[in-house]
Nucleic acid binder design. Structure first.
Lengths: 144, 144
DNA sequence: TAAAATTAAATTGTACACAATCTTATAAGT
DNA sequence: ACTTATAAGATTGTGTACAATTTAATTTTA
């Protein structure tokens, strides 16, 4: 019975995570569309802006993504003129990604995104509450 | 300052959701691999098992997925012999998905998945705690 | 009841996601 | 120095995601 309970608990959590994550990402879409960005491109840029210059490797470990995903994504951002990709002189294996002037301008233009998204989070409150309950339950049993 | 706080809060939540969701899905991978299933196929089967027979439309609304994703996915499950896809006689537009005998057997075989995954959740405890904190903070401001 | 609107899947095209492999560059071991 | 091992990206192949369009079936409505 204990096991039965755990199975359900865990399933609900994984599904809540999956569903809530999707809901929130979906909120970003229209806002990012106006800037010609996808969600993954957006979070990649967030990390790039934060570090000002970062290797593909380091970027990947922050985003839990590998070069198979990042290489084409960064090439697109480069094509759009938002970042540069440069091999490190001291180690030609490493590619450094950094914002261009247009990339820094984009950061300014995009400041409104998280703000207007925050207002919309009201619409996902139910999902967030469900997730919270499941998290609380799970963490309680994990910790004991 | 309030706005600044909201921006950061929101960014952290969306990223926590993204990261934690990925972490948990990654835990499933080796377990599901042994059954030849992907994570999406697994959660689709979970819903199909629960309903015993369900339309593509209804399945999609449960999983937040459309026919563009589900049609190829269900064709693969059909090819693997786990489900049947049948047009409804009373409405030829609707496709009903149901488990085959092999599909029901798979359900029995796969019961161990959530159990052994639950044990591994310990490893994601830190992420889960971060997510919980952000959820609590956010919900507090959303509710007030 | 015939035309228009709606609906459910399927299809098409773009963009991740990730395992596996390949290429090139650097580091280690002999 | 030479071989081997390791490391960082790029590439390839499969599998989602999802918007947009298409097709065929069912409803609605004029």
């Amino acid at each position: 019975m204990q096991t039965e309970h755990q199975i359900k608990l865990e399933n609900q959590l994984c599904f809540s995570l999956y569903a809530t994550s999707k809901e929130v990402i979906k909120l970003y879409k229209p806002l990012l569309d106006t800037h010609g960005l996808t969600y993954t491109q957006y979070i990649a840029l967030m990390v790039i802006w934060e570090h000002e210059a970062i290797s593909v490797k380091a970027l990947g470990s922050k985003l839990y993504l590998d070069s198979g995903t990042l290489t084409p994504l960064l090439k697109k951002l480069e094509l759009q003129g938002f970042v540069t990709r440069t091999r490190l002189e001291s180690d030609e294996r490493t590619v450094i990604v950094a914002p261009t002037l247009a990339g820094w301008q984009l950061q300014k233009d995009i400041l409104t995104v998280p703000e207007s998204l925050y207002c919309q989070l009201q619409h996902t409150a139910a999902d967030l509450f469900t997730l919270k309950k499941q998290l609380d339950l799970l963490l309680e049993t994990l910790v004991k």
